[in-house]
Each structure stands twice: as structure tokens, then as C-alpha cells.
């Protein structure tokens, strides 16, 4: 399985992340200083690295404003960038639960065929958030933030990783 993470390039404004940060900080949990967000696509099928790169560059990213990481290993392997002043850094991945209709994934499956890649594939679409804070934050507090602002726990699962 390939996991593609689509991120906004550093010199472009990630207004979605700014909006989410505003939401978190106005729920009474004003603990987060920075937030980055990215989209995740888990693509399974008999695909080559070259085909994956075509899917990523031609379909999943906006060439002007976005870039991507690609891995073909475990989904919870994360990269952390951080400052020494950050006391708490969390990475959260959110995926739909099994059985929940993933409409974006269905569209990706159709769009991959438009690229001329006819292999049978299965796709999952997820979200990834990086939370940074100058304060010490308990994982339990992050769970409240995630379930309040980032994840609909009825239909989505989340994984929290903390940078030690």
C-alpha cells in the first residue's frame, strides 16, 4: 500500500489550517500555537512507483501550491518538524471507519482511470493534523480537541502520535 500525504507548500497560505486553529482556540481550548494540515490518500493495488508518482503529480496535488510525500509503509509513520520552544507536538491522522462511504476515495478511483491507469485499486482518503504548543499538553486534552474539532467520532477513527 502507498500512502501519499499532500501538503501546502511553505510559501503558500494554508487557510484551511488557519480556520481549524481558530475553531480550536475559540472552543475554550486555546492551547495550540500552530497547526498544519494535510490530506492523506492510501492507495492499494498492483501499482508501480512511477504510476503512483503520476497519480500524485497529475491528480492529487495542485502543482502550483502543493507538494507530496509518498511512502509505501506503515500509515502511522510521521515526520515532525519542531522548534526547541515547542513543548508539545502531536500528529493526528483521521480516517473513515470501515463501512462508511468515502466519496472522495470513489472519485479518486474514477479519476485514476482517466489518467489511463486501469489497474484495480482501492483508495482511502484521510486527514492529518500537526499540533504545536509552547505549553505542556496532556494527550487526554488532545483527545478532547480532536473529538470536538477535528473528527466526527461516529464515522471516523483517529490516531494520535506525540513527539517525545
Amino acid at each position: 500500500m502507498f500512502k501519499i500525504e499532500v501538503y501546502t507548500k511553505i510559501n503558500f497560505r494554508n487557510s484551511y489550517a488557519e480556520h481549524i486553529l481558530f475553531d480550536i482556540n475559540t472552543t475554550g481550548l486555546a492551547l495550540i500555537d500552530k497547526l498544519y494540515s494535510s490530506y492523506l490518500y492510501a492507495i492499494d493495488g498492483n501499482l508501480t512507483i512511477r504510476q503512483i508518482n503520476i497519480i500524485a503529480t497529475e491528480l492529487l496535488i495542485d502543482k502550483i501550491t502543493e507538494g507530496y510525500y509518498c511512502k509505501n509503509n506503515n500509515l502511522t509513520e510521521n515526520e515532525f518538524s519542531f522548534n526547541k520552544t515547542d513543548h508539545s507536538i502531536f500528529c493526528i491522522e483521521i480516517w473513515y471507519k470501515n463501512g462508511v462511504t468515502d466519496t472522495v476515495a470513489e472519485t479518486v478511483t474514477k479519476a485514476v482511470k482517466d489518467l489511463g491507469i486501469m489497474n484495480k485499486i482501492s483508495v482511502k482518503r484521510g486527514y492529518k493534523y500537526y499540533l504545536y504548543s509552547h505549553r505542556q499538553i496532556l494527550q487526554e486534552t488532545v483527545k478532547i480537541i480532536v473529538s470536538t474539532c477535528l473528527c466526527n467520532v461516529l464515522i471516523q477513527d483517529y490516531i494520535i502520535k506525540q513527539h517525545k
Binding site: 491528480l59 472522495v104 474514477k110 489511463g116
Partner: peptide, 19 residues
């Protein structure tokens, strides 16, 4: 188009461009 999935207009743009 296509629910604005991935990003707005992207899927239709690819479809038109490729087909």
C-alpha cells in the same frame, strides 16, 4: 463538478485534458 473532490475542478480538468 465531481463534488469538488480532491480540489475544485481538478477531476474534470484531468478528464477533459486526457480524453
Amino acid at each position: 463538478s465531481y463534488g469538488d473532490d480532491i480540489s475544485s475542478g481538478k477531476v474534470l480538468a484531468n478528464e477533459l485534458k486526457n480524453i
